[in-house]
Design a protein around this nucleic acid. Structure first.
Lengths: 199, 199
DNA sequence: GTCTACTTGACACTCAGTGACACCATGCGC
DNA sequence: GCGCATGGTGTCACTGAGTGTCAAGTAGAC
């Protein structure tokens, strides 16, 4: 079915309305000053409905960012085994970066909000940590390394550190610098560590 | 004054009582199942007093860990300029690791609790992110690099990624592996990236 | 003794998040 | 057309985190 059933589309509609309302309000007053009641009222639904679509107030904002990298580990696993880890990891991390670069007008305020709001940053980093677990497992499987080897986790952490550094620099430059170019530059620096993941 | 004034000592006493109560309760029932009221009651103080000593429920646990690395950037800044960045960063990160290794019996359950509880992990990573900012500034100052150079932030992130990896492995091994040996092994892998921070 | 500074307990309040129940629309078998 | 299951929604009520305020108690300075 190409149309994901009416109910699914309505769900997307409400979700989008809620995120839009949340972002508009938070851009004006900041994350903490906006209550869930305000977001729900602005979107025209009840407070309870908000929590049927999002697990928490942070979730509205953070999910925008984390949805982009949801299949990071899958991307890595899909890369050919012959590819060096540094290149495979770069491809995995590039997906969300490219998504940001492609919607700079929408994404930049969101990323800025997340990186500058402690509560949002905390939740975002927790998600990134989950990505690290997934990437670590995928890297270990690729290289045939055991769970006691430090290198897969180090490589995953270093690659995600590059991801964060790119986002940071992108926001700091107000979107002036090209995220993809920044990613390339970052991976040029960290490449040697990533390619240490060999049997 | 060698005795930090009676009031300061009493403050430490209450704080210690609260953290002890929190850890005992959470070790038994988990972080989420324990309420601030229970912690305060167990420690023999009022709920309000709890929040005069800790900013949040997460703070009781996370502060134990983050206090160890509070002067990470200061340690880095105190290292001789001639020292290669990889060695200076390793010294900076070793301080909290050594503290963990020195009090394995007390620290291991705390680290395990933090790494396995989403809310605690989120707050911990937020603190680590602040360390990254500080280390980045110190590294840039050491090398005389501008704020637009990716390398200081990449190096700081990579070093802290090693820090996290060591903690992860330490917990996964139930404390069997030596944290200092793990740190040395990790920094051997990431060394090249850290030493890329040169003018 | 008194005054000041600091901590505490008690109370009240906002807000995040959850559970329970009733309501309503769509879709399906009869 | 009718009855019925399903899934989203609104309302209400509740727990728990976190904050502001005020009164009371105590150590230390004068």
């Amino acid at each position: 079915m190409e149309t994901p059933s009416l109910t699914a589309r309505m769900r997307l509609l409400v979700t989008g309305e809620l995120t839009g309302a949340a972002l508009r309000l938070m851009a004006a007053d900041g994350f903490d000053a906006v209550t869930v009641d305000q977001i729900a009222a602005t979107a025209g639904v009840s407070r309870r409905t908000f929590f049927r679509h999002f697990a928490s107030k942070e979730d509205v904002v953070v999910r925008l960012l984390t949805d982009m990298g949801g299949d990071m580990a899958a991307t890595l696993a899909a890369r050919p085994e012959s590819e060096p880890p540094s290149l495979a990891l770069r491809h995995a991390v590039t997906a969300p970066i490219a998504a940001c670069a492609g919607h700079a007008g929408d994404a930049l305020p969101v990323v800025r909000l997340v990186l500058t709001t402690p509560a949002l940053l905390a939740r975002f980093l927790e998600r990134v940590s989950a990505w690290q677990d997934e990437l670590t497992a995928a890297l270990a499987a690729r290289a045939g390394l055991g769970a006691d080897d430090l290198r897969p986790r180090l490589a995953a952490g270093t690659a995600l550190s590059a991801f964060g550094t790119v986002l940071h620099r992108w926001v700091a430059s107000e979107g002036a610098e090209d995220p993809l170019a920044l990613t390339e530059a970052a991976f040029t620096v960290i490449g040697p560590v990533l390619d240490a993941v060999r049997r």
